[in-house]
Amino acid sequence: MGQEDIFALIPKDKFDTSTIDELMKLNEDEVKIILPELLYWIADFNWPIAKEMINVLKRFSNNLTPLIQNALRADESDDMLKYWIIRELIPVLSKEVQKNILTDIKRICDSPTVTEEIEGVCDEAKEFIENYNL
């Protein structure tokens, strides 16, 4: 599949689940170029696309680690994306990937930003650490 075809599979809006089946057929090399855009679609779990996108993302968990680590950095401002990554995505990933992200989750627990506290990101991080024996 060509790059243009792969980029065409990125959802157009929060209701666009039409390409989920095709996204599930991609291999790791093909999906790499659009993974950052796909991760964005779980930023609000009220969006119909979000639940479907979790299933796509978990297929490519080995490629997600650096993207998740970047999203969870203190200087990243999308706290709702952080919240949903911790609440919905990380729990369905392999223990190995969870362990690789643990330092980032602990940072949120130990030194949350003001907005991470306001948005409940630190509460989700603490709950994750309590519930997942890593």
Rank of each mutant, 00 (worst) to 15 (best):
M1S: 12
G2H: 11
G2R: 13
I6Q: 06
A8Y: 08
L9R: 06
D13H: 14
D13M: 08
D13L: 03
K14L: 07
T19H: 11
T19W: 01
T19K: 13
D21M: 11
E28D: 10
D29I: 12
L35F: 13
P36A: 14
L38Q: 11
L38G: 10
L38F: 13
Y40V: 11
A43Y: 09
A43W: 10
D44H: 03
D44S: 03
W47P: 00
W47R: 00
P48W: 07
I49K: 02
A50R: 04
E52S: 15
M53F: 00
M53I: 06
I54N: 07
V56G: 03
R59W: 05
N63C: 10
L64E: 04
T65C: 12
L67I: 11
I68M: 09
N70Q: 15
L72S: 06
L72I: 06
R73G: 07
R73F: 05
A74Y: 09
E76N: 13
Y83C: 01
W84A: 05
I86V: 15
R87C: 14
I90P: 05
P91H: 13
P91L: 10
L93N: 07
S94L: 03
S94E: 05
E96D: 07
V97Y: 00
N100C: 07
N100A: 01
L102I: 01
L102T: 06
R107M: 05
I108M: 15
C109S: 12
C109L: 08
D110E: 13
D110A: 03
P112L: 10
T113N: 08
V114W: 09
T115C: 08
E116V: 03
E116I: 08
E116W: 08
E116M: 11
I118E: 09
C122I: 11
A125D: 15
K126W: 08
E130D: 15
N131H: 10
Y132N: 15
